[in-house]
Design a protein around this nucleic acid. Structure first.
Length: 476
RNA sequence: GGCCCUAUCGUCUAACGGUUAGGACACAAGGUUCUCAUCCUUGUAACCGGGGUUCGACUCCCCGUGGGGUCACCA
């Protein structure tokens, strides 16, 4: 699923949930040449990963099989060929469509000539005037053909729920193919038929579809059907303002999830790109968005994806998360790196490190120092305003203090901190000269959580070991 | 090129005729602090141009200009 598709999906979802309507997943796979193996499964899995439920459409079972729910199926267009055929016949019989035998080569040449002549490429209707008996004969002979809709003269217009009225002159519209030579309906016919049959009230889609809307309006007219409400959402842009594309970075929802963005943040971020419910609020729950969503407030101009802001938002969500829940989210990323860790310890690490995480994947580098102490320079142990001698003396005195911290104290971050601060006070010491070497001894790092937190996570025995290591290093 | 969409800080946005043009990200400077992160304070930074309409335009209209989309037996 493309990140832009996710936004459209969320808007569909918000709208449907807000109005008590049905949110439908329909698979538009009428191009056999572009079928990607397992694409459908991947798409449906993404819905599951994001926790987006829909009311009708194909559902992936845990055993990998596909089941459809809803009364208007099948919801996969490649399974609906028989549904479309009668409408093609109807359009043909009414003179709203015609059979075309032109080869792809001829069409290609025609287009090149038109382009060279600075004309807008458009089918020249060579097959429109073909006598009925000739058409019948060639059809009977099994000649390859397509069916085109005969675009009438005049103008059409529709009221876009986001942009207002948009009008087109039909002289600019091509005689669109509605039935391809392989017998599959084209997208244009399929959506019009399906939207009608499936009783679709609202169609939200990307802005790039605006220019194909007149074809669908004409089709609705020809079939005598009412149009659904169309809303064309703005494009999501690359930093250079062009349509967000795969070529300029990975844009699939799955890749964002794999990078450690959580669904809540991704949805919050993408939903408020081109849509702003309140103006000054940044973080919205899904429930809030369902309540506040308003199609008329969706922007009509494209928006660049601000990745720094996504990072910030993701960090906000991670920070707000319960450490226990965070630990569960983070675990798969550790397991992918074959790092195993007991739950209790991981929860503690999440507690002390979560404000340093931007993405879930950041846990990988955070966990290391707790598992094993990396080598470090002894000079690191000396606080900037202190001396090596003082560090030695502080650590020497600290070891027995840490060694006798009792079990009850060790279970509580607050108690550990209170105990150590009391020690500093009673011995009339300063924070810096004590806490710095303690912290470096425990982490081996110039930057890390506080010594109290490290102590809490590491436990007394490991802490004492590391203090002794530090002392050994200094006395080296 | 034709057609269509579009235009507020670098980016995402608020404003729906009257504001010192607000917020967020990013950036910068302080503060808190044993370090980092968090957190707090402050700062730099925008109405594309020109005409109208109006007592008054970021807001409405028109024309430019810029940007984008689309012109397939792809969706």
């Amino acid at each position: 699923m493309h990140i832009g598709t996710l936004r459209t999906v969320m808007y569909d979802y918000f709208l449907a949930r807000q109005h008590g309507g049905q949110f439908i997943v329909r698979i538009e796979d009428t191009d056999q040449a572009r079928l990607v193996p397992d694409a459908l499964e991947g798409l449906l899995k993404t819905f599951v990963k994001l926790g987006i439920d829909y009311d009708e459409g194909p559902v992936l079972q845990t055993d990998g099989s596909l089941v459809e729910k809803g009364a208007f199926g099948p919801y996969i267009q490649s399974k609906r060929l028989d549904v479309y055929r009668p409408y093609v016949e109807q359009l043909l019989a009414a003179g709203h469509a015609y059979v075309c035998f032109c080869s792809k080569e001829r069409l290609e040449e025609m287009r090149e000539a038109q382009t060279a002549a600075k004309m807008t490429p458009k089918y020249d209707r060579r097959c429109l005037g073909l006598p009925a008996d000739e058409v019948a004969k060639r059809l009977a002979a099994g000649e390859a053909h397509v069916v085109r809709m005969k675009i009438p003269e005049g103008t059409v217009a529709f009221d876009d729920a986001i942009r207002g009225r948009i009008a087109f002159n039909l002289s600019d519209v091509d005689d669109q193919i509605i039935l391809k030579s392989d017998g599959f309906a084209s997208y244009h016919l399929a959506v019009v038929v399906d939207d009608h049959l499936m009783q679709i009230s609202h169609v939200l889609r990307g802005e790039e579809w605006i220019s194909s809307t007149p074809k669908q309006i004409v089709l609705h007219d020809m079939l005598g059907w009412d149009m659904p409400t169309y809303a064309h959402v703005p494009l999501i842009l690359n930093p250079d303002k062009t349509k967000l594309s795969k070529r300029k970075g990975d844009v699939s929802v799955d890749s964002f999830l794999a990078k450690g963005y959580v669904p809540e943040a991704l949805i919050n971020f993408i939903s408020t790109l081109g849509f702003n419910p309140k103006g000054d609020q940044e973080i919205y729950t899904r429930e809030e968005l369902v309540k506040l969503f308003d199609l008329s407030k969706v922007h009509s101009s494209g928006a660049v994806m601000n990745m720094e802001k996504l990072d910030w938002m993701n960090a906000q969500y991670l920070r707000a998360m319960d450490p226990r829940a965070l630990a569960e989210r983070v675990r798969p990323f550790l397991e992918a790196d074959e790092v195993s860790m007991d739950s209790e310890r991981l929860i503690k690490i999440c507690t002390v490190e979560k404000e340093r995480l931007v993405r879930l994947t950041d846990i990988k580098e955070k966990v290391g120092p707790y598992i094993s102490l990396a080598p470090y320079e002894s000079s690191l142990l000396v606080w900037k305003k202190s001396t090596k001698e003082e560090a030695v003396s502080i650590l020497t005195n600290l070891i027995p203090v840490v060694s006798v911290l009792d079990e009850a104290t060790m279970t509580s971050l607050a108690l550990i901190e209170a105990e150590l601060r009391e020690y500093i006070e009673q011995n009339q010491l300063q924070n810096g000269p004590v806490l710095w070497p303690l912290r470096v001894a425990l982490s081996g790092l110039a930057a890390s959580p506080s010594p109290f937190e490290l102590l809490w996570v590491l436990g007394r025995e490991e802490a004492v070991r590391r203090l002794e290591t530090a002392l050994g290093l200094l006395q080296g």
